[in-house]
Design a protein around this nucleic acid. Sequence first.
DNA 1: TGGAAACTGAAATTATTTCTTCATTTGTGA
DNA 2: TCACAAATGAAGAAATAATTTCAGTTTCCA
Lengths: 290, 290
Amino acid sequence: MSNASKTVSDVINDQFEALTRAEKQLAKSLLDNYPVSGLGSITTVAENARVSTPTVARMVQKLGFKGYPDFQSRLHQEVEATISNPLTKHDRWASNAPGTHILNRFADAIMGNLRQTLTDIDAATFDNVATLLSEPKRGLYFVGGRITGALAEYFFTHMQVIRPNTTLLSSNSSSWPQYVLNMNPGDLLVIFDIRRYEQEMVSLAAAARRRGAEIIVFTDQWASPAVKYAKHTFRVQIEAPSAWDSSVVTLFIIEALIEAVQSSTWDETSERMKTLEGLFEQTRLFRKLG
Amino acid sequence: MSNASKTVSDVINDQFEALTRAEKQLAKSLLDNYPVSGLGSITTVAENARVSTPTVARMVQKLGFKGYPDFQSRLHQEVEATISNPLTKHDRWASNAPGTHILNRFADAIMGNLRQTLTDIDAATFDNVATLLSEPKRGLYFVGGRITGALAEYFFTHMQVIRPNTTLLSSNSSSWPQYVLNMNPGDLLVIFDIRRYEQEMVSLAAAARRRGAEIIVFTDQWASPAVKYAKHTFRVQIEAPSAWDSSVVTLFIIEALIEAVQSSTWDETSERMKTLEGLFEQTRLFRKLG
DNA sequence: TGGAAACTGAAATTATTTCTTCATTTGTGA
DNA sequence: TCACAAATGAAGAAATAATTTCAGTTTCCA
């Protein structure tokens, strides 16, 4: 039964529901700080999980291993596979050198941010936002601040291909009232507002809300004041070993949303993309002929 | 004696010359594929190194450990330190979402891209580019395509704060010749060109090169044709479980570069940022008074 | 070349780990 | 509330690991 390609953690997860209370407690302990927490003796593992050694022995057999030593040697193989990954090696070398390279430090921070953000994020929120974004009747507006404007533009550029009725607000706040004027109830306004929150964003959110628009806010863990008008909020971890905040994780969520919307509306979208290809082709021809 | 910060491998290396023949043989076996090779029982380790168990027991004591279990628990700690590095953790993303949720699949893909990119990337290239970018005499130009334009803009917005003499090329290629006209030898042109490579990019790169500009290209693993004019190239992994390519890792490198440049020119940059703050403040005042 | 010192691993001993048994506890449905 | 099944851990048995002893071997120097 035990597929050779499955990791120990896969096996634990697969059978988790079939485990008893004490075993679940043990399983959690093993998955927490996996796979290192399974490296010690059966006694140590049992103590760490606050269960008895027989519980450990029984569970590993229940999971399909011949016994604790068998279970542990599998873990050793996984540790080996993880550690002999070139990047890990690179990292170990670099950490010997004084002052780790900025690339490594940045990678560490980003990974931490991504992990934390994904832990915090509510899958239901994500799915709801994806659904809202994929309804073509709703007008779709994007707006960002000085730094986040590029993110708004990135999101906009993709959504513009996927669906009609999509608008990017100029980063110049004096022109915003005109956009609000055209919003209808049920339209969506996607706001990016990160740290040094921009005062005008709150006013914009309030005005759009009064027009009946639904508001989605991308902000940081401290939350822009605009969230009080928001139907859905994404709080993203943005800290990096830098004088600037990081937008990497925000971009990650944007791309995931793009894909979620795209795949839920694939029929129409693929048509649109074909048409768009044709238009590009024509443009090129114009140039050559002209 | 044994400095707490010394790794087991350090200890072995330090005392290597004082070891006997069989012990050296064992030491080599341990260092080869370190630290995983020391994970098993004393018997296993002895067998792998083709020495007897007493040799192992004697050597670990000679190295200053209380015994084999002591030696091994030290190794476990090191494995833990290596593995619990955020970069190597790739399981359990959004714990509340099912494993097949787009967020989790995306996270896996991005992680893979980041690892691969970091493995491929040359730290020297990175440092050289950071140095080039931080020389204020060089004019700095950014250009991107339809999708990557937002990345160019993001990079530009930050660099514009950090240093003077920075320009973002319009995404409309018909205006590019005018920019090239103003380029001087030694100026830098940062090009983003990812898949569906845009023909005009190559022409732009060639023209800029003829004017004596140095060219830096951000592209994907298949490489834009513009790289043949490039002084430095970043090849980024861009594949995602999506109809679209992912820009997350590209943004990661951009942010790391921003930080590298910023920290190397902190004195001037901090002055500039203070001045900028003052300007923002004035703008706000204007509005209130006006 | 002889002999002492150092090295090595087989084997015995000791310590620890792993597994099994079984009594107690916990939970569940009649 | 009771009876039964399932779960759990204490305790001991079995297995394995770690250490020590010791005798054979090698090395090195006079």
